[in-house]
Nucleic acid binder design. Structure first.
Lengths: 203, 203
DNA sequence: CCTTCCAGATACTAACGGTATCTGGAATAG
DNA sequence: CTATTCCAGATACCGTTAGTATCTGGAAGG
């Protein structure tokens, strides 16, 4: 317990560093090749460790993926919040959000991972509930953004913001899932549906 | 080549029967437990064969699943077409379709299989294109139904029927994917969005 | 300085998709 | 009717993978 932690590479710090490296490498591989197609051996190897390091830091492959998804969600939320913060008018904000969604759905590696892991999670009630918990958070965040837009601009909406968020998230998942199989899918319907939901004329 | 095929259990007939049995058993297991969680050994065993029978009738696990999906789609299309044939007015037809979708999304074993296999198909360009081909057919069928509704009832629609079909299919996929993880998801937004797409007031 | 402890390495198992090979009996030729 | 061919399905095997059990080197702590 050094008073001044100079160069204090404690055991806990080293482990946290290992954990972070594993998450970073796993995120890259899961996004590039998918969950099932990425072996834990390869994650460990590319991170410069052995598989033992993985199982020492995560209960199993699923827990590693949950950690990866958390690290992704953190970044996504930052992006969307920033897009809203950097714009003032309703139209600009909607356009910024549409652009963000178009970008995500256009190269849907993230959506694909989310959907694939959802299929895996289905096998285990615990993992399913953990993933559902995260989906609920995302829906809540979208609903809050919708509330801001609706209140701010005095537009009319024909369903609750929670329901509208469910529609948008489902639409994003479904479009991304199809887009990862068929690049010709028309992703523009996302923005169109969004405008229609909040009672705006088609752009 | 008997003129009267009495009791003609030819080799081709036996193989077709084997193939049909395998598809039937695989459909039950894939729907109950998922694609990855169902081993070919188990499919063969429960069908009363060995794994050799599977590989003698299908190129691999993916081709077996494509055959299973085809057999499912056949039944689904029959159901929807019948629902339309059995009703006359726009409202009745929409309600029948909503009820069908609610039933499918409420116990989303089929949607879950479709989505899980989509993730698998992503690994192989050939399988991906085969699956995308089927999705395109489904979208076309939905678009055709929308055309009938729109023309028949003289309602207005703010996007092409192809785009509306894309929205509905994506929404169904996304809702089903979430529903299979979280039974509290509000599935009623499917019908609400559908009505809104074709310019009808909320029911 | 010596003991304890644990992050990570190593060695293993079971399960799975897929391949190679074999075989018994139906199909066909003579 | 007999002999030969052929192939649907069985059997035996392989490589890969998630997961488990065990070990070890070096930091933590007395």
């Amino acid at each position: 317990m050094t008073a001044i932690p100079e160069r204090a590479v404690t055991r806990a710090e080293r482990q946290a560093q290992t954990r972070g490296t594993l998450i970073k490498v796993a995120r890259r591989l899961f996004l590039a090749d998918g969950y099932a197609a990425t072996s834990l051996d390869r994650v460990a190897l590319e991170a410069g460790f052995s598989k033992g390091a993985v199982y020492s830091n995560f209960k199993n492959k699923e827990e590693l993926c949950l950690a990866v998804l958390d690290s992704i969600h953190e970044r996504q939320i930052e992006e969307v919040v920033a897009a809203f913060r950097d714009h003032e008018t309703l139209d600009e904000r909607l356009e910024a959000f549409s652009a963000w969604a178009r970008e995500r759905l256009g190269r849907p590696r993230w959506t694909a991972l989310e959907v694939e892991f959802g299929s895996v999670a289905r096998q285990s009630p615990y993992v399913a509930s953990e993933l559902a918990k995260r989906h609920t958070q995302v829906r809540g965040a979208i609903a809050a953004l919708i509330d801001v837009v609706v209140e701010d601009a005095g537009v009319q909406i024909s369903m609750t913001s929670e329901q509208a968020a469910t529609v948008l998230l489902s639409l994003g998942i479904g479009l991304g899932a199809q887009r990862s199989l068929d690049p010709t899918i028309d992703v523009s319907v996302f923005a169109a549906t969004m405008r229609q939901l909040i009672g705006l004329p088609p752009h």
